[in-house]
Write a protein that binds this DNA or RNA. Structure first.
Lengths: 195, 195
DNA sequence: TCACTATACGGACCTGCGGTCCGTTTTTCA
DNA sequence: TGAAAAACGGACCGCAGGTCCGTATAGTGA
């Protein structure tokens, strides 16, 4: 019944691939595509190994993304206030949004890749597991608030204003600093949760 | 000096290509890619003609998009109230947003293609000419409002909540009707422009 | 320690697509 | 009507995602 312990080389390779992919996505100059071959080569692994381990390109990207955001997800799911579940609703929504903005800005190339990789085929970003998860957390928290808006819709609105491409546009094309963006986002959150 | 009148066949072909592309993008089943070859064949034209006339794939998509939204842009730029420039600011923002939502919902496949085609390479949706144009109109109109929020940022927020993929998600996965979405959008607009 | 088997490996290979190129055809204009 | 300018179209190219299968190797039982 026990399906034999996972092979050591497979585990090693998976880690190597994730590390290489993370590095390439992050370092590759703005708007440069990163091919699967490049990732395989950088990881010192055959292409077959990539596809066996992650299914397809978007699977790999998702895996990298999940590795990068594991800590944040944990902090939100089980951490202390203001991110964790114990916090007062409004504070929590604001804290979560601020954290999301910071993570997206700090990993902007990866986030761009993620968001455009998922929007290509049938599965939109919005149908993605991580999106659904944050959306659910936000919606539940918003529901505990006194706002008269629909919680689910409001959560979508909040998340849509922190899409990676928009954030990127604000930091590059304009003079907006990270703090400024966080503060602008916060303004909108307060508006929407007021009343 | 006068650079010879445009050739009749070129004009005919351009129209045929636009029509074929529009039809294919609109009719192709959810999540099915439409290749340039397919468009060329459907238009009864060689592939070279496509690329000569529109530069590249995203150029073609943009052209189709612009043809489809010409009327709306005109109504906003020079039309009567509530869309046109004469209207009271808050009314105008609300009207523009409602019109945008309706157009996006009615042309959802095309809008999806447009938004993902532009987000692929360096140019994000946000750097696109049509986006910049609506954004400018909204920002200017918002500036005439009594809101304390930053007009440009607010305009970005408004536009981000009507991205095609989100709208699609709301209509398909949930039970949200077109009217419901328009009304939800309107709620947010009012919140943001209040005070 | 030594088979033996399940599992993973890796890179040659396939396919489809965006984009280019250039010999041929059509249109325009004098 | 003839010649030049402009457009045509489809063969062709390179690249990237994804598959396949013969080979290598980690685990397992004796």
């Amino acid at each position: 019944m026990s399906p034999r312990k996972a092979r050591a080389d497979a585990v090693r390779n998976r880690a190597a691939v994730l590390a290489a992919a993370d590095r390439l996505f992050t370092e590759s100059p703005e708007g440069t595509a990163v091919s699967m071959d490049a990732i395989a080569t950088a990881a010192g692994v055959g292409k077959g190994t990539l596809f066996r381990g992650f299914g397809d390109r978007s699977g790999l990207i998702r895996a990298v993304y999940e590795a990068r955001t594991e800590r944040l997800r944990e902090a939100i799911a089980t951490g202390p206030a203001p991110l964790g579940p114990g916090s007062p609703p409004r504070q929590r929504v604001r804290a979560v949004m601020a954290a999301v903005v910071r993570v997206k800005l700090e990993n902007s190339p990866l986030m761009r890749v993620l968001e455009s990789a998922t929007s290509g085929d049938s599965g939109a970003l919005v149908d993605t597991e991580p999106y659904r998860w944050v959306h659910a957390v936000l919606a539940e928290t918003i529901a505990e608030t006194s706002t008269s808006l629909d919680p689910s819709w409001t959560a979508h609105v909040l998340l849509s204003m922190v899409r990676a491409d928009l954030l990127d546009h604000l930091t590059s094309d304009r003079r907006a600093s990270e703090d400024r963006i966080v503060s602008d986002v916060d303004d909108v959150v307060e508006r929407l949760l007021d009343r």
